[in-house]
Design a protein around this nucleic acid. Structure first.
Length: 795
DNA sequence: GAGTTTGAAACT
DNA sequence: CAGTTTCAAACTC
């Protein structure tokens, strides 16, 4: 933030010098902002863009801070009135033009958001919805920040810009911005009044916030001016107990997001890039909070001195955002902590110790983070990759996906979590293994993206809904597809979700071995489980963690997602992987002998991915892609060939699903990070192992993140969260993915890590640069939500 | 719901 | 690393 403002100030002087020249006047007439922008872009870009974004997220408080900021600016114009930032803010916007642009972009984003939201709404999970919104908003904000739009806003430097951003972030705010911007521009100082009005509206909105949200969600309209505040409210509400796991998931994601931002602004903080994967870690969170606190303090100081350097102002504003964020985090934490606090602590400890074991846990978080981190990544670069979008549970996204769904139901809520939906995120596990910002899936994302559901469905061939959807999708236009997806998601929630989350039925493993799907997914067993002598419960956290570590020590990727997406870019896995429906592949490959890879016994099939070179299967007939490279999904012919098997197993559905996936893949934006796991079980997420898990490959996602960035920037759509589909696909793997993948992964190549068994695991590639199209390849699959194993660097 | 099949996970 | 055992999900009846 600072930079931008500075730029402005600097710029202003020079401008004054040249004001006289006709050329200058002409230029000015065109757009006052331009000059600033150019400067702004150059200088401030990295720091500002990020910082500005955060501000957007900030709650109302933020706005106040911003106001102060604006005032300062105004001060430049009007030194006399420092304190009425609100008023000044309007002026600042002077760059109405800018606001318009931003608004346009935002508008698009908002539209997408709305769509995304629909699913939730339909779902009708009130408590969660708030959470989701809160989560989503922040995410969207992040995205926005990353996106060019943000830049524009920052450029404006004026409050109006901020407002616009906020609006954009909220999704529907655009209208507000527009109004505010216009007013401000036209009225000049009087615009302050407009601001006040807005604020009042926002306040009122807050009061009605819940009702508004529900309504809005349904309508998908966030247009009211209030939105920003409403968001704030959401943010705050997110803390609500209802949030449950989903919240935790979301929190994670947000944390990640915040982290990067904070880092950007505060040098003190570690670079996000450096610790991308770990953002989730409690330690980091603590740091963030501390930073926020410090920022808040600074802000106070700053506010007192409006005239201070722009930097200070920026900091203050940032501080505010941080603060707000921190609040959110706190809320999240509580939720998360409730479940995972201990785990997190341990993780931290472990990390300190240097143990790598906990990759999984981290990975989960990372996955979520990755999704969000996308933004940061763009900016920085970095770290985002590490964090994979996966939702929490990494590993077995596949397993989770199906399971997750169920959990969600139980748990709660989460609606959002469909997911995991992920959060997967997600699948998402994304938190509910929903992943998916990531993550979410969080929940929010997941909820938002019908696609996720689809993806999850895809994972579960059995899901009829998927089938239906596929049919519809095939026929319909993208929009229709979306609708279909929404329907599906809803249906899923209604039906499948119940089924969705599977539960384990362990009798001898005590749910402490990978045999246990819950354990493998990184989640605690819940009531629905029929397990006996279950130790996979929060009560036995120590045991769970210890066991995890042990398993990880044996196989670092044990908890990594089994299915790695990615192939988009990634050739790694396989081979022909690209052909497979999803380009995703099973990290180790299957070893089927009798099922011909046509039944769920086959992990590849189960994960919705084709068999690859890594597979040692015999008589492979995997509908998603044969080991020999024969065409996968898309090939209807093949499917038909296998008609019998298909009929039995529902492969037919799969084929359709695949087609669907393809369609989505085609969609440009799909890239969004998948949500993490589904969060079906989010509630129960296991404590992450202390060690940070490497980010999940999701990054493949990670890569995606990078790609996301590109896309985002390149395209206004930016925000558009990936379709759930995409997310799932990506996320699936991601979700499960242990952070490791991400973290490790260097962006580049998928590192193949060899499992102890010598099985190769290919982490998702994280090429930041990967083009979206490539990613689309991820589509991979239905995936699972992958988790992301962390390819971590650990190893 | 019980029993069988299957292949991953765990163990040797 | 290969072979065997254990395990729980997937599947069948």
């Amino acid at each position: 933030m600072d930079t931008p403002e500075k730029t402005t100030t600097q710029i202003t002087t020079p401008l004054s010098k040249f004001e006289d020249s006709p050329v200058f006047n002409y230029i000015n007439s065109l757009s006052p902002i331009k000059p600033v922008r150019s400067l702004h872009v150059a200088q401030a870009f990295h720091s500002l863009s990020f910082s500005s974004v955060p501000s957007i997220f900030t709650s109302p408080h933020v706005s106040s801070h911003k106001e102060s900021r604006f005032l300062r600016r105004n001060n430049y114009t009007d030194a006399s009135k420092p304190e009425f930032s609100s008023e000044n803010g309007n002026k600042g916007c002077g760059g109405e033009v800018v606001t318009v642009d931003a608004a346009a972009q935002l508008y698009e984003n908002s539209a997408e958001l709305q769509e995304n939201f629909d699913p939730r709404v339909s779902v009708g999970e009130p408590p969660n919805e708030h959470m989701k919104f809160a989560l989503e908003l922040p995410r969207t904000l992040k995205y926005d920040c990353d996106s060019p739009e943000c830049d524009s806003t920052t450029r404006c430097g004026t409050q109006s810009g901020c407002l616009s951003e906020l609006a954009g972030t909220s999704g529907s705010l655009v209208p507000l911005v527009m109004e505010a911007g216009q007013k401000g521009s036209s009225q000049g100082e009087t615009s302050a009044e407009g601001i006040h009005q807005i604020e009042e509206k926002t306040e009122a909105a807050e009061c009605d916030w819940e009702s508004l949200i529900s309504d809005a969600a349904d309508l998908l309209i966030f247009n009211s001016p209030v939105d920003p505040e409403a968001f704030k409210g959401l943010m705050l509400k997110s803390v609500d107990p209802n949030a449950g796991f989903c919240a935790s998931y979301n929190n994670m994601q947000e944390m990640q997001i915040i982290y990067p931002i904070s880092s950007g602004e505060q040098h003190e903080m570690e670079d996000p890039s450096t610790q991308p994967g770990e953002t989730i870690g409690l330690n980091q969170m603590n740091q963030v909070e501390e930073n926020l606190d410090s920022n808040s303090k600074q802000n106070k100081c700053i506010t007192s001195h409006p005239t201070e350097d722009v930097d200070n102002e920026a900091q203050t504003s940032m501080g505010v955002t941080y603060k707000t964020i921190s609040n959110l985090h706190r809320g999240v934490r509580r939720r998360c902590l409730d479940f995972e606090m201990v785990g997190a602590r341990r993780k931290n400890l472990d990390e300190a110790s240097g143990s790598s074991s906990s990759v999984l846990e981290n990975s989960n978080e990372r996955t979520a983070s990755t999704e969000r981190s996308l933004v940061p990544i763009q900016i920085g670069s970095d770290s985002s990759r590490r964090s994979l979008p996966g939702i929490g549970l990494h590993l077995n996204a596949l397993a989770l996906t199906s399971k997750e769904n169920k959990p969600i139901k139980h748990e709660n809520l989460s609606s959002g979590m469909t997911l995991p939906s992920s959060a997967a995120s997600f699948h998402s596990p994304s938190m509910g293994q929903e992943l998916h910002d990531s993550l979410s899936l969080v929940p929010a994302e997941r909820d938002m993206d019908p696609t996720e559901n689809i993806a999850s469905m895809a994972e579960d061939p059995s899901q009829a809904s998927a089938y239906i959807a596929s049919e519809e999708l095939n026929q319909t236009s993208p929009r229709k597809k979306r609708h279909v997806l929404h329907k599906i998601s809803l249906k899923r929630r209604l039906e499948g979700e119940t089924e969705g989350c599977k539960r384990c039925n362990c009798k001898k493993s005590k749910c402490l071995k990978l045999y246990c799907e819950c354990f493998a997914a990184g989640v605690y067993c819940i009531e629905p489980c029929s397990c006996q002598e279950c130790f996979n419960k929060p009560i036995h956290e120590d045991t769970v963690l210890a066991t995890r570590k042990q398993i990880e020590s044996r196989n670092p990727l044990a908890f990594a997602p089994k299915v790695i997406r990615g192939s988009d870019t990634i050739p790694e896995i396989g081979d022909d992987s690209t052909k497979t429906p999803a380009s995703a592949r099973h990290k180790r490959g299957c070893n089927c002998k009798k099922s011909s890879c046509l039944k769920k016994y086959c992990e590849c099939y189960q994960g919705g991915v084709g068999c690859s070179i890594n597979c040692r299967c015999e008589g492979c007939k995997n509908a998603f892609g044969r080991k020999d490279g024969s065409a996968p999904i898309e090939m209807e012919g093949e499917v038909e060939d296998e008609t019998e098997a298909n009929e039995r197993s529902g492969i037919g559905m799969i084929s359709q699903k695949t087609s669907i996936q393809n369609n989505e893949e085609q969609t440009p934006n799909t890239k969004l990070p998948t949500t993490p796991l589904r969060l079906c079980r989010p509630l129960v997420q296991l404590p992450l192992s202390s060690t940070s898990k490497p980010p999940r490959s999701l990054l493949g996602i990670g890569s995606s993140s990078g790609s996301y960035v590109g896309q985002k920037y390149g395209k206004p759509n930016i925000i558009r969260p990936m379709t759930k589909f995409e997310k799932q696909y990506q996320s699936i793997p991601d979700d499960d993915i242990p952070d490791i993948l991400q973290s490790n992964c260097s962006p580049t190549v998928g590192v193949k890590t060899s499992s102890p068994n010598s099985k190769r695991v290919s982490p998702p590639h994280i090429n930041l640069g990967s083009s979206p199209g490539i990613r689309s390849g991820r589509k991979l699959i239905l995936q699972s939500i992958p988790s992301f194993p962390s390819l971590t660097p650990h190893h």
